[in-house]
């Protein structure tokens, strides 16, 4: 008995053949490589330090030299560069393990960040930019925690907001000017990261007895919300508007809890009603905007 089907688009033979081809090759190579890594891991303790460092360095240098000599296709070159960048971190970790230098995690991440900066700049590859930005963020946090002046959590998140906003603006500038292949996802991701840090800075600053960093965050947030909203309207970006609006709601909700001095039944009801009403208002306006910009009622 034939069960009635929903009309579907199914993968065709050519696509299956391509997928199986890549899958067999990819799985074969991956398992073989990991097996070799496991073999080295088994013998790792018995290897001479020079051999350990030599292997790691060879894994970085040989593929990069290979790019220069064999000139593979663009994607392969970028992937090799990204792999080499990740292995730089493994190399430094190996160095630290062998010689027990007693260095801070900050030193490790700083060195890793500095040593892949050049490759990141020339790679024209968004995933590598993302790895680099992540390393920059981690280095900053570790600097503040382990080496630098004792800054509050609010101050730390303000710094991270500034760094990620700068990165996002740079990516957007490069995209507009066509200076590199900048995909939309990395611009949106950095915008999300920057907004998250700003929201966190304001919310924690509210509960942290309004330290000086909170006022810096407040000024920056006003500039960001105004400039961000104007730019969102200019570029017809609903995503940015949604981000800014959600951030504002969370901050105001935090302020309500702070003002009412704690978590009581009344506070919780007030906050939930505020969120429902503001989200409802926001969505109704955004749907109208979407309709006027794109002719769609979302």
């Amino acid at each position: 008995m034939d069960i009635p089907e929903i009309k579907n688009e199914y993968a065709e033979k050519a696509l299956w053949a391509k997928a199986i081809d890549w899958a067999l090759l990819g799985i074969g190579v991956t398992f073989s490589v990991i097996g070799i890594i496991f073999f080295f891991a088994y013998n790792w303790a018995d290897l001479h330090p020079f051999a350990k460092l030599g292997i790691m360095q060879a894994l970085i240098i040989l593929p990069v030299v290979g790019i220069l000599i064999f000139k593979p296709v663009e994607l392969v070159r970028r992937l090799i560069l990204m792999g080499a960048s990740l292995l730089v971190g493994v190399l430094f970790a190996t160095f630290g393990q062998i010689y027990q230098t007693g260095a801070n995690a900050y030193d490790f991440f700083l060195a890793w960040t500095v040593f892949i900066a050049l490759w990141t700049m020339i790679s024209n590859f968004a995933p590598l930019w993302l790895i680099f930005l992540t390393l920059v963020n981690v280095t900053i946090v570790l600097y503040i925690q382990q080496v630098g002046a004792e800054l509050s959590f609010t101050a730390t998140t303000v710094i991270l907001f500034v760094v990620n906003t700068a990165a996002g603006l740079l990516f957007k500038y490069m995209q507009i000017r066509n200076l590199a292949d900048v995909p939309n996802w990395i611009v949106k991701l950095t915008a999300l990261a920057a907004t998250t840090f700003l929201t966190t800075a304001l919310s924690t600053g509210i509960f942290d007895h309004y330290k000086p960093a909170f006022y810096v965050a407040l000024v920056l947030s006003l500039i960001t919300y105004i400039a961000g909203t104007l730019y969102a309207f200019k570029s017809k970006s609903l995503y940015l508007l949604c981000l800014l609006y959600l951030s504002a709601i969370i901050v105001v909700a935090s302020a309500i809890i702070r003002i009412t001095d704690g978590v009581s039944e009344g506070t919780l009801l007030l906050v939930s009603l505020f969120i429902i009403l503001s989200i409802t208002f926001a969505i109704s306006q955004l749907i109208k905007l979407n309709k006027s910009w794109n002719g769609i009622s979302a």
Binding site: L25, I27, G28, F31, S32, G35, F38, F39, Y42
Partner: peptide, 16 residues
Amino acid sequence: LLIKSAIMVATGVLFL
């Protein structure tokens, strides 16, 4: 790790 290494290399060779 040695036996796991052998299993993985064998699997990899099978797929290749």
